[in-house]
Amino acid sequence: MNLRKVTAASAVALTLALTATACGGDSDSGSGSGGGGKVTIGIKVDQPGLGQETPDGYKGFDIDVAKYVAKQLGYGESDITWKEAPSKERENLLRRGDVDFIVATYSITDQRKEKVSFAGPYFLAHQDLLIRTKDNIKSGDDLNKKKLCSVTGSTSAQNVKKKFAPDAQLQEYGGYSECLSGLESGAVDALTTDDSILAGYAAQQQYQGKFKLAGLNLSDEHYGIGIKKGDTELQGKINAALKKMVDDGSWEKAVKANFGPANYDFEPAPQITEQG
């Protein structure tokens, strides 16, 4: 995958190539080889503080990271095409070339690295529980026999069942908003995912005073930027961009801007480990 800006000469060649193939299929996705000076980035659109669609555009820490990386790769904000990347579809989006890279609370795991590659990590979160303010869950054991909600394709709920609460009744929904509705109505007893995501929801105006974090560090989640399997060239460029973001202070500024209202006690920027 080549994510460099297209020069004037190559833009002409690209235009001719696209014209020649226009009748043979969809050639305007903008992903893959750079797409004529465009870049397609996979994101979440329903995670306050991280990646959320708002009337003013996409907002959140992951969005800020994606914009910074894209700029370092030679793309302005107007060159970015945003594409929703649900948890269960992230590997498929990269495999098919529907996106150039993914910045979407994408935890680096050995299982996922069998299908895709990562740059980073760029953030360290911990798995936790979101519960109703009146409830009290002090450990994973307290979840046994209770209804636990998570999003289809996420590793969070499976981690809880495997390591902490094998008798928890797992409820998997398509999005976090459904889990939040279930938690508010009493249909489920807890929502589990990363504390960074939960903090964003708890800080929303409509949920303030209703929910709280249980305060359990059930796992370490290293967020990486997902790329196509084996693309070491892009991996190196993104790693360099992430390092610069930390070194020039932009990383910490973005964390505080997006998580500050939730009083989220964030970890320092992690060391980059994904190489070659």
Rank of each mutant, 00 (worst) to 15 (best):
L73P: 03
K145N: 07
V99Q: 02
W251A: 02
A17F: 14
D142A: 12
G30I: 06
I197S: 04
G24Q: 14
N159W: 07
H222Y: 15
L213R: 12
G42H: 03
A9F: 15
E252Q: 15
Q127A: 01
D247E: 13
I225E: 02
V6D: 07
S107T: 12
N239R: 08
P268G: 06
F266Q: 03
P48V: 12
G42C: 06
D46V: 12
P86M: 07
G120V: 01
A269Q: 05
A11D: 12
D194E: 13
Q111Y: 11
A241K: 08
A202M: 10
A168Q: 05
I225L: 10
G260H: 09
S107D: 08
G49Y: 05
I272T: 04
P268H: 08
D141C: 00
D62V: 07
L16I: 15
A262H: 02
G236V: 04
S107R: 02
C23A: 15
G97K: 11
A70K: 00
T193L: 10
Q205K: 15
K83G: 03
I41S: 06
E114F: 05
V103P: 05
K244H: 00
A187I: 09
G186V: 11
S139Y: 03
F101D: 08
K228A: 10
G51F: 15
G24R: 13
K256I: 09
Y68G: 00
A254H: 03
T155G: 00
G35M: 10
Q158R: 03
D110G: 14
A257D: 10
L73R: 04
L94S: 03
L170M: 14
T109G: 01
F61T: 06
E221Q: 00
L94A: 03
E84L: 12
D265M: 09
E53S: 15
L93R: 02
Q205H: 13
C23I: 11
D189H: 11
S219F: 02
L130G: 08
L180W: 01
A241F: 09
V151W: 08
A9M: 14
Q271C: 00
A199D: 02
V65K: 03
T19I: 15
G36L: 09
S185Q: 11
N136P: 00
Q171Y: 10
G224A: 09
K67E: 11
L124Q: 07
H126N: 06
K146E: 01
E84D: 13
N136W: 00
K161Y: 06
Y106D: 00
G174M: 14
I63F: 12
L213T: 04
A168M: 05
